[in-house]
Amino acid sequence: MKSAIIVFPGTNREQDIRVALRQASGTDPLLVFHLETSLPEVDLIVLPGGFAHGDYLRCGAMAARSPIVQDVVAKAKRGVPVLGVCNGFQVLTETGLLPGALMRNADLKFVCRNVDLRVETSQSIFTSGLSEGEVMNVPVAHHDGNYFADPETLDRLEGEGRVAFRYCAPGGAVDGTGNPNGSARNIAGIFNESKTVLGMMPHPEDAVDPLHGGTGGRGLFDGIVRALS
């Protein structure tokens, strides 16, 4: 599986994603700088976490208008799978590839800890290695992860099976107790209409090795590689 990771000034999780993809696929992803204007043909594009362009104006706003992202958007519209994690999710909402926006955390605090996620569907290339209802323990590290969309958009996302993950209690109950940032309907990750674009705030790439303290994110990458190889 060939993959490319986009790097902006201020990106800081590109090596984490690289390690996770290399571990799952056996091939080293390509790192592509934001000033490039086109990407080679790849099976997966990743927008990693960090603070692209210092989060100036709004998180992801500058990155979404950078030269390389115009090609990411074009390829995503052609069906090339795109995964955006944390800051990458913010960039995807700023491009319009995913609906809604990520707002300042409800309690105004930067949150950096492990959370539990309930897998809402296995019906996508990203979650095919997971089971519906499965609980993943992975870290979050963000200040602006409070997912917002108007009620009609939230209803549509739920109705079309486009909620990928929700924050949950350790046993899997989605009752708000596991929600670290105030996200609407406990949403931690969503798909586009064709489920070929996934944006998520938590960091599965930082839970792929026992030295990370857990391997709760590994199933996601193994599933992606199986689906795309």
Partner: peptide
Amino acid sequence: TGVLDPQGKAI
């Protein structure tokens, strides 16, 4: 209107 503004609330 309708978009939560936690910073405004804190102020």
